[in-house]
Nucleic acid binder design. Sequence first.
DNA 1: TTGAAAGCGGTACCAT
DNA 2: ATGGTACCGCTTTCAA
Lengths: 328, 328
Amino acid sequence: MNRKRITSIDVAQYAGVSTSAVSRTYSAPGKVSASTRARVLAAADALGYRPNQLARALVNSGRQGSGIVAVVMGEFDNPFQPWMFGLLTQALQQQGRVPMLVHVTEQCDIRARLQQALSWQVEAAIISAGSLSQEATERCLELALPMVLMGREDKRETVTAVLSDNRMAGELAAEYLGTQGLTQLAYIGGRQDGQASLERLAGFRSGLIQRGLSAPVVMENRDYAYHSGYQAMSRLLREHPDIEGVFCACDALAFGALDALRLNGGQVCQVVGCDDTPQAAWEGYRLTTVRQPVEQLVAQTIHHLKQVLDGNSPTGTTVRMTPTLIVR
Amino acid sequence: MNRKRITSIDVAQYAGVSTSAVSRTYSAPGKVSASTRARVLAAADALGYRPNQLARALVNSGRQGSGIVAVVMGEFDNPFQPWMFGLLTQALQQQGRVPMLVHVTEQCDIRARLQQALSWQVEAAIISAGSLSQEATERCLELALPMVLMGREDKRETVTAVLSDNRMAGELAAEYLGTQGLTQLAYIGGRQDGQASLERLAGFRSGLIQRGLSAPVVMENRDYAYHSGYQAMSRLLREHPDIEGVFCACDALAFGALDALRLNGGQVCQVVGCDDTPQAAWEGYRLTTVRQPVEQLVAQTIHHLKQVLDGNSPTGTTVRMTPTLIVR
DNA sequence: TTGAAAGCGGTACCAT
DNA sequence: ATGGTACCGCTTTCAA
């Protein structure tokens, strides 16, 4: 605790320039002569100076923006979310922005959490709406804040949204299962108000019908969790023992389904997931699944976030990324 | 964009008091008369005022601390980490502090990341050292910052550490496997420089020897990942086909081991994990495992963080929490 | 280009 | 208990 904190004043003194010069060196390198900048950097280096982001954010929160971006996300126990969060975090940090996680749980007061984030002057929000309830998403959209919606689209609002082409995901699954010559098919859905789940079902159903197959048996669920998949599959085996193939709204559900299958007598039934989380590649599962292009989703989200912040986002743009079938 | 930002000045005017009164209402409620506070709160409510945390943190970063706590963490793909992160986040937020994730990956420059965090004036750090390499942990310890180490102990430094009693974890595993009457046992370790892994092995070994059993075959690994567990187990089955029981340094490894077992001919072999991540309860695994009391670890960490911040942490305190065997 | 000075939104010490 | 005011560390007009 002996070393005092180095400020731009110290650097200015040491370099024999004004604090303005120091400031400009960091935030507007073009507006200082090369010589001044060199001296400042030398001084900073000698003194071990790093600009105070807090002060910077405070003053910038009016003009440029604080650099803090809220990431609103739930279902942290579904591997998909932490995975995406990790990627978003890295991407944001590379831009000099800093993510602030707003962790939404079932029994938490979203409004309060959001207000808390706002009081840190977040300049924008990335809403991982796929992991949120309809209602939670609603609360987020109320925020008068630049934002990008991920994994869910909202037609009424003029919000930029980035998500996978979920219909196509369903169609890919239908095509795959159809090509295998399977005819008795089912769909294990996720959360009722989950747009992704509904869209995937729609795609799946229409894909089947296009192939002259009958519509799938549909199992509803309350969430996207493993246990739901397990139970749904168990029930399916009981109620529709002739089932030959199942498409699940997400990988976690598929893992549950696979295990139910395995434990309930090893009946032959093809399971297809959706997401392609790292776990899908586990030797124990080797899950055939429809891959969401997560890296691309993240890249697009970051890109559009910039657009929105620069005021370049026309009307409610929606970007849909193309999923791919991963056969394992 | 039409609504101007409300500041304490606005509230003060509206309430007919000074900004000091407003400030006190929020940060030292004891130092304002009930009546004043009431008026301020009413005004704040009417105007929709929320104190600007950025400004607050800036000025407090000298005295009280900014309220920002760095959480340094790696291996986000091991379910254990996100799980803990979620809990830490919630606990911190309840205290009015805000977590700032420093996501450490293999190929990232830790020093740079840490400096970045420091420039936000984080007032303390929670180092999830169990998920970090020895070297990364070293870099963290260099920080002249109040901190709590999780999942690793450092005797040289006078750092407060919170972790599980890993030796006991190993002993519990030994006891369990021994009681089953198994004699040919092995250990599947995690990262080489992983203290937890080594301690668990030590406890496991001594537990076995105490029971008159021979020391375990030890399989080394480079990380705590599923695939490592899978490969280790596969090798084990090849090289030591008579193996009867395996203790793994963490659940992820155990999942890999279980799957290797399942796929390589279904040889009978008891697998015990360590952590008790939510996944261990999956029907497909039903993993018997040594549970880390994560909630307690988090609670203790938060508690000691406060101590450290208040300057009440004597010498390098080390808190070891008791693990429990979960039989499935 | 460069420096002086006025903030950004609060907090805390100082009298009153 | 209350208000006045200097100040936290940086950015940004505004003149020079």
